[in-house]
Write a protein that binds this DNA or RNA. Structure first.
Lengths: 234, 234
DNA sequence: ACCTCTTTGTTTGAATTCAAACATACTTGC
DNA sequence: GCAAGTATGTTTGAATTCAAACAAAGAGGT
């Protein structure tokens, strides 16, 4: 367990990863290092196949994956295992649990390679330091924005998923995507299989619906490109 | 449009509602009023059937419903309307949009009765005032906790909904509920219809599955009470 | 006791989705 | 150009869900 007490090679090697993390958006390299010291960030290491966090634990730290890869998994009472996220360097995790006092982890995180993790104590992060450094303030804003963005994303996803039929899930998603991109002609960040997984439907069934929608003139699609026709007789 | 410049009867009448809002948890009446002044909260009124917020707008304010009722609705490109939330006094809304700079509202909010709304500017809220008042700090913590809680709830709901079959959705939900309550014997906050709506399945199909699960010995249920048997031969 | 309303469980045929094939086009590496 | 691999669309029978009924039990009011 290291501490960010001085700027040394340990910190340097993480900087390129940390810079890409939305939590540090708008901060210069020096400001990031200053903030980490101010907050008292720590580095821990986990060997491959070790548990980084385990369901039932408590944590008051946001964890930032600096190197390696890991899985966020969930198991139910009857032992059914479910992979929730595939973590890459730069990703952070456990942040909602850290932000709620005494919250118990409902997921586990397992290292799939040797990992290095930067731990940021949530209480230190959200409590203004006496110096009231401006970077600190920026970090708090970034944290809130990150939470808000996740809330919006989840909210949208739930909207799509709550439709009972594949067709309606597709229309809901495509409608939202057109609105987000501000155009009836847009690309989506998924291929067919990924889109099906995102909407929790069968790829085959989804392909059938996409064909029907095209025959009915509601939209045109080729690979990841879509063009919607709002005026079609519905 | 009023401002919270001094403590008058306008503020008094909202206090009972504001006190119940998680955003003000841990603050005394006086601290709430002080904070509202410090942040520059404002009160607006909307008549029944008026739009309080409209999809496409931008807002940098968290809105807090002080009196009246309203609906959060969403419409897709082809005019399909969808009621997302039924707002009651004490509820707040638009907070993720306010927390993301320049975010465009993807939902509309319509007053279903005459409404009074307390608007709190997000930038004022998350930027430390020069006085660095302690209430202010508490508000920021509350905001982060509220976001985190919503993230967790959504995350759980998505986990349940992403199961393809009614049976799996039930087991996922009940498993999580048992974990949350720390007991295999627990009550859920839903009746059958509400549970079906929450999991986005048919009440009838769900009743059938619940009967099967009981016959198979995986659980016992009576009304809102459940007892799970993790050792049953699955 | 009686009636009405609400909640929950059950049944049934129709619609939809699932799961596993297979077909076709396109890409990639040789 | 050719072979292997990948992405997408199509088909099919089986499983599941939907939607609309109806039945049974209980709550509440008269």
């Amino acid at each position: 367990m290291f501490e960010f007490k001085q700027r040394g090679e340990i910190l340097e090697k993480f900087l390129n990863v940390l810079k890409k993390c939305p939590l540090f958006a708008g901060l210069s390299d020096d400001e990031i290092l200053t903030s980490l010291k101010c907050i008292g960030a720590k580095v821990r290491k986990n060997a491959k196949n070790q548990y980084i966090l385990q369901a039932g634990d408590c944590t008051d730290c946001i964890s930032l994956l600096a190197s390696g890869t890991a899985l966020v998994i969930q198991e139910d009472l009857w032992g059914n295992r479910n992979v929730m996220t595939n973590l890459m360097p730069g990703d952070y995790f456990a942040e909602p649990f850290a932000a709620i006092p005494d919250a118990v982890l409902s997921v586990s995180v397992v290292a799939t390679e040797n990992c290095e993790i930067v731990e940021i104590n949530m209480n230190h992060l959200i409590t203004m330091c006496s110096a009231a450094c401006s970077h600190h303030n920026r970090l708090i804003k970034n944290l809130i924005t990150a939470f808000a963005q996740k809330t919006l994303l989840f909210n949208e996803k739930i909207t799509h998923m709550s439709k009972r039929k594949t067709r309606d899930k597709l229309l809901s998603y495509l409608s939202a995507e057109a609105a987000r991109q501000g155009s009836l002609s847009f690309d989506i960040p998924f291929d067919r299989q990924q889109l099906a997984d995102f909407l929790c439907v069968e790829r085959a069934a989804m392909s059938v619906e996409l064909s029907k929608l095209q025959k009915e003139g509601l939209l045109k699609t080729f690979h990841s490109h879509f063009e919607l026709s709002p005026n079609a007789t519905n």
